[in-house]
Design a binder for these strands. Structure first.
Lengths: 340, 340
DNA sequence: GTAGTGTGTGGAAGCGCTTGCAGTTGTGAG
DNA sequence: CTCACAACTGCAAGCGCTTCCACACACTAC
């Protein structure tokens, strides 16, 4: 394989100068720079990033830790981060925690410690104390997305605020009988998202003087399937049905729509449904939602980290609130006169 | 940071012996091995894979190239591969080609050439001659999934056969007016999947003596949204509607179901729908499908590659046909007497 | 007894780069 | 004309491991 030595030889320069020319660091005369570039191109030379990393300590690689690759939010973050990294010439190492506790354990105790990454992005992870400690032991800048991450910089949306806004959208249409599909309590220990959104919902209801009916708050995991089951229960058991459902995520809203159709309920005539996310399917389903630009969050995380890396700064723990946008489509409407 | 030197010192051994003890290669007495392990554990030492790679040429890292992370098939493959790699102590570097041609170009011309990966898995890529060449220039074992990849080992399903089987399922129920949603022609140039499935469909129809009506073959991209649009067109324009739709993927089948509901068609009473994949949503929607175990394909690709790496074998180009399974749910049924 | 074999160990030479340092040249100021 | 300084370049010392080689030792076989 051709190495930087071959390039140097061909360009009639020293290895050192070629290295500086190719990396753009240090002073190199324009002539030399051009000759080095040309020689590299002719030989099809690409730097070995391992050798480069070993010598410089910079890996040009970012680790992305996700709980799953299937849920929309995670794949959107992956997509956004991946594109931004590609753009910057960085590799992306994906750590998909999954359901297996052994895998989870090894990611934190082994994989991340191999000094293979310049930075870590952790997405919506409910981390234990130990895991947070291990994460920090990597001694690399960390950005958390979609959940609190003690000691690290985080990118998040105003969960309570948007839940409030979403609920207000339904209230504004005239709904008063509003149900909420939230995340499982278990999630709530370290991962406050479901609780925060729920409290935003409750606050909006209270503000409007609408009763929050406990039987109209059901929980599910954050999937279409999970919410489908929960929504069926909600819609089946109620002698008196809600006229609107605010789901804590778009996937949950989609599950709700599917369940509603099973009961012969028409959206939005018999039931208004809205979610939070900005899921790609929203368009097809006409889902009213609050778009949280997950792709943008992934890209922002990358920009933040690369900025820190390139400036050699320690990343100060700081919260960045990512903007969101209410997208009104056809799944929400004024309740039918009889129903309300 | 603690290095292998520190471990050696603590264990009272040479660096060389510790390296051998920790990697399991070469002769080391049980006593020394244990002492090395203990010292490493006490110091929380984890090998630097960069240094290790540089010295040994083995990176413990596999590159996974996908066209997108959103479509179900790809995320399922990622999940399967990721778990298998984690199990083996390997990292996974994700190259998400995406829509941007510049990104696509740089993945093939730069990223993969950085000698950072021991092996490459390429998923459903429609590759140009150049790209195939660049892929082989990596000089690493390659496995292709879900499409032909000249010169590389591939894992695939019997696309024509399962399309035949799927169509036969509908024919067996008594349908004769069957539509097919296929992939776009553009895909067909290098990526024969839609064409192959379509030919399986046509063959089954011909075998059964059923006419294939050109207006009942519509194409879309392989997404819910795409198929939704195509199916709306199919169902709207027909003065005479098909009684069943065979979609080339589950996501397309789901799009079809959503479109059908827009027209007030009941599944399966008015329209039977089936797909191919084994999508997670299939359960909720009662979708009849042919499960192709994408996760398993990802895991198999990893096992194949690791086998080749560990045995130092050159991976002979070979086709492995992955098994599939017809899963009958509630989206397909005998056509209504009046409809057929 | 000697030679032959196998096992366990350490020294040291790299793997392919980056970068501190020192040396060379060219420039403008004194 | 000398000196200070900047711009450029090359040498060589690593980065933290793996692995070849040499060596020591304990055997077995003759």
């Amino acid at each position: 394989m051709t190495g930087i030595k071959d390039v140097a030889e061909r360009a009639g320069l020293s290895v050192a100068t070629v290295s500086r020319a190719l990396s753009g660091k240090g002073n190199v005369s324009p002539t030399s720079r051009e000759r080095a570039r040309a020689a590299a191109a002719e030989l099809g030379f690409v730097l070995s990033y391992h050798a480069s990393s070993l010598a410089s300590g910079r890996t040009h690689n970012v680790g992305l830790v996700v709980p799953s690759v299937h849920r929309w939010f995670f794949s959107a973050v992956i997509e956004g981060a991946s594109a931004a990294l590609l753009e910057a010439g960085y590799d992306l190492t994906l750590y998909n925690i999954g359901e297996n506790p052994a895998h989870r354990q090894s990611v934190f105790s082994d994989f991340l410690l191999r000094k293979r990454v310049d930075a870590v992005i952790a997405v919506s992870l409910e981390l234990s104390e130990d895991e947070i400690e291990q994460l920090h032991a990597v001694h690399r800048p960390i950005v958390g997305i979609g959940g609190p991450l003690p000691g690290a910089s985080t990118i998040r949306i105003d969960d309570s605020g948007i839940a409030h806004k979403a609920t207000n959208h339904l209230l504004g249409l005239g709904h008063t009988k509003i149900a909420h599909i939230t995340g499982h309590e278990a999630y709530d220990q370290d991962f406050h998202l479901p609780g925060t959104r729920r409290s935003g919902f409750e606050k909006a209801m209270n503000d409007a003087g609408c009763p929050v009916r406990p039987e109209w708050i059901v929980s599910a995991d954050f999937t279409i399937e999970g919410a489908y089951g929960a929504a069926r229960q909600l819609l089946a058991s109620a002698p008196e049905r809600p006229t609107a459902v605010f789901a804590a995520s778009d996937e949950m809203a989609i599950g709700t729509i599917l369940a509603a159709r099973d009961f012969g309920l028409r959206i939005p005539d018999d039931l208004s449904v809205m979610g939070i996310d900005g899921h790609d399917l929203g368009n097809v389903l006409g889902l009213t939602t609050i778009d949280q630009d997950a792709k943008g969050q992934g890209a922002l995380a990358v920009r933040t980290l690369l900025g820190a890396i390139n400036n050699g700064l320690v990343l100060e723990p700081a919260d960045t609130e990512h903007p969101t946008k209410l997208v009104v489509r056809t799944s929400t409407a004024v309740p039918r006169p009889g129903a309300s």
